Computed example of a mutant assay.
Amino acid sequence: MSRLATTGEVLQLIRSGEAVTRAEIGRVTGLSRPAVAHRVAELLQRGLIVEDAEGPSTGGRPPVRLRFNAAGGVVLVASLGAGRTQIAICDLAGEPLARTDLEIDVEEGPDVVLPLVMDTWEKLLDGRGGVVGVGLGVPATVEFAAGRTESARVMASWTGVVIPPIIASRFPVPVLVDNDVNVIAMGEHRMAYASELDDLLFVKVSTRIGAGVISGGDILRGALGAAGEIGHIPVRDGGGVLCRCGNLDCVDSVASGTAILRELRDKGRDVSSLADVTALVRAGDAETMAVVRQAGRRLGEVIATAVNLLNPAVVVLGGDVAEMFQPLVSGVREIVYRRSTQLATRSLRIEGSRLGPGAGITGCALMVIDRVLSPEAIDGTRAP
């Protein structure tokens, strides 16, 4: 480093493993021994690092190693979905310490849902202290800086709600809110792909369809937070299905879990849930498999356009429907490789989620951790 490193920057060196002894910190930063000692002492006092077992000796007394203390605080997280909400407490490495899944009708609105989520956090905390931040993923377009929901896909009663002050009135810590698929994409990328690639398209196929875009290693939100709203891109030959947004044949209305159930019922199948569809697929029911594969083709039509536009290294398919139905994934692959450009698909991979349902929890935690442990936050605040 060309200038004197701050305490926050020293913490980043320790967290990354780039410098884990006082001597290494001095060599990397150019700080004097007293300056290193001062910064390390502050981090120890704040509980953000601990002194580990003595490291290997190169002659003389072995150096004491410094290690990031993931137990130095907790993060409250919740990933709200149309049918299922995941609520957890995570440590400062993003690992869940306690978790529960709830069936919550998010369309009941924030006055009902947010108190229920906060009550659940209180129960999961069970007397634990050290809350440093809150992360929330919601199925809506979110103006990230303000934490305001601008357009809700499945919960219109939330539109225009500024969420952070509501939660901060009970948990007075930084509160970050983002679109549900954005946080899933962040979790999937950071925990499963960051060492391999910087450009990823995550597509969630569940009750509804949405996408999160990782470009150059960072989430792409767009000017108003609406990047990734592929669910409302129309497809050809969709049959004239009216979407809840008012347009016809949006991919959300013809290829989502809700659309698959509707189409099978129209064909006389007795299906009340995606589990019923799964049973028919596993039984080899030809008509059901054809419906699911056609949904995959329609989704593939939209993803092919996104591949040509964004040129991701990998398309990750997640959500209940993608995880349940291989015929849908096969339909996506068929159309994407046929309709995307040869260059964009030269090394493109299309694969299932590596993290599975836990990606939303992980993404919410990392979103908060990146903020509260940033050099700027560490240097501008006292112990969390």
Rank of each mutant, 00 (worst) to 15 (best):
G127Q: 03
G55A: 10
A98S: 15
T29C: 03
T258I: 07
V10Q: 02
A344D: 07
R282K: 14
V131H: 03
V10F: 02
A304W: 01
L366A: 04
A23P: 00
G216S: 12
E287Y: 14
A168R: 14
P234K: 02
T7Q: 04
M1K: 08
T362S: 10
P327Q: 05
R22C: 08
V112C: 03
G239V: 09
S151R: 13
D285G: 06
L4E: 13
D52W: 08
D266V: 04
V74D: 02
V74Y: 06
P375V: 04
P34Y: 06
N69D: 13
V213A: 01
H38N: 10
V368F: 01
P234A: 01
L274P: 05
V307A: 02
R297F: 01
A53I: 10
V154D: 06
F68G: 02
M1V: 14
A283D: 11
R265C: 14
A226M: 14
T100Y: 04
G363H: 07
R3N: 14
S16F: 13
C90Q: 00
A365M: 09
A192F: 02
I369M: 05
V132N: 02
T345P: 04
R46L: 00
M191F: 12
F202V: 11
T85Y: 10
C243S: 14
S353E: 09
A226T: 13
G331A: 06
A322S: 15
P375N: 08
R99A: 13
G360A: 11
R236C: 00
I49G: 00
R349C: 07
A88P: 11
G380D: 06
V132L: 15
A192Y: 01
I233T: 12
L310N: 00
V235M: 02
P164G: 11
L200G: 00
V183F: 08
F202T: 00
V281L: 14
L309M: 12
G160C: 11
D266W: 04
E334M: 02
D270F: 11
G228C: 01
M289C: 15
V64L: 13
V254C: 04
S206M: 10
S253W: 02
Q86F: 08
F325C: 04
R297G: 01
T21R: 14
G216T: 13
P165A: 10
G55D: 08
I369V: 13
M186T: 03
R128K: 10
Q45E: 11
G47I: 07
P115Q: 05
P56M: 06
E263S: 09
S206G: 15
V113I: 15
E376A: 15
V321I: 03
E188L: 07
V131K: 03
A93R: 09
D178L: 01
G358M: 12
D199T: 15
G133Q: 02
G246T: 11
P63S: 10
T100G: 03
D101H: 09
V112K: 12
E229Y: 13
A344H: 07
